[in-house]
């Protein structure tokens, strides 16, 4: 117990130190930015102070929250669709050699298809609709999820499967309590890189074919060469995505991996 408490204190000290480092690192970036902006003195590189002022103004009077919300909803929808379908495909391909052989080339093809091509084709074939936009983003992400989960499904431990079978644990309970926990690390890996990819592609989809959302706003400011507001939107969006990592992914991952010492 004593040892445990000491270890806990040490690890919280470590966490505090790394938080301080992080803040220091970000402060350094802001400082470099501010100095550069002052030195260049151009409308194309607004100062950090100006961008923060714009951010506050957009939050208070603009449509930032509305557009941020819309974009996040699209990110969430595309992310969930990609994770569910990609996971299912990955598991099936990892478990069945026949299906793997049959569809492996499709997967490789999809993996190498540029995001832009998928988006343009989706808009051409299905129109400038919400469903086409979200579908296009999901299709961009599905192959990567499938490949990761296929690795996971291949690495499933036969010993556990035999245990479950010999004790007649049942299909559903086996899937939930024996198979899925072995896949969690792969699901988290896919989710992490998935979120990073999905939110970037959502902005492009909005820019190309939709009439609201962060991507659409950025396109508007681009046409006006309003770098200040572009950067303000960028900061808001990056902050929200990082927040999702902190309040959703990390606690969830800790919970699922609580048995590891």
């Amino acid at each position: 117990m004593r040892v445990n408490a000491t270890a806990q204190r040490a690890s919280s000290r470590l966490a505090a130190a790394s938080l301080a480092q992080r803040i220091g690192s970000i402060a350094l970036l802001v400082a470099v930015w501010q100095i550069a902006a002052v030195a260049v003195h151009s409308r194309m590189l607004p100062s950090a102070a100006a961008v923060f002022a714009a951010l506050v103004q957009l939050c208070l009077h603009g449509t930032l929250f509305f557009n941020l919300g819309i974009t996040l909803a699209r990110v969430a929808a595309a992310f969930i669709v990609a994770m569910v379908i990609g996971t299912a495909i990955g598991i099936v391909m990892g478990r069945s050699r026949t299906i793997d052989v049959l569809f492996d080339s499709w997967l490789v093809l999809l993996l190498n298809l540029p995001a832009l091509v998928i988006i343009v084709l989706a808009y051409v074939w299905f129109g400038l609709t919400e469903a086409a936009a979200i579908g296009a983003v999901a299709v961009n992400k599905i192959p990567a999820v499938a490949v990761t989960l296929r690795e996971g499904a291949r690495a499933l431990d036969r010993n556990y499967a035999e245990m479950a079978e010999s004790f007649h644990v049942g299909r559903w309970r086996t899937l939930r309590h024996v198979v899925m926990p072995q896949l969690y690390p792969y699901i988290f890996a896919a989710a992490r890189s998935g979120l990073a990819l999905v939110w970037k592609i959502v902005l492009i989809v909005e820019l190309l074919g939709l009439s609201n959302g962060v991507g659409f706003e950025i396109q508007l400011y681009f046409q006006q060469f309003d770098v200040t507001r572009i950067l303000a939107y960028t900061i808001a969006f990056v902050a929200v995505v990082q927040l999702i990592e902190w309040v959703l992914f990390q606690p969830l991952e800790r919970h699922v991996g609580r048995w590891r010492r």
Partner: peptide, 21 residues
């Protein structure tokens, strides 16, 4: 079946391992 290695699920507690069957 008592296997050569215990084959307990590491992500389930002792109780949960027995409850599974």
């Amino acid at each position: 079946y008592v296997f050569q290695e215990p084959r307990l699920l590491p992500w389930r507690t002792v109780y949960e391992n027995i409850a599974l069957v």
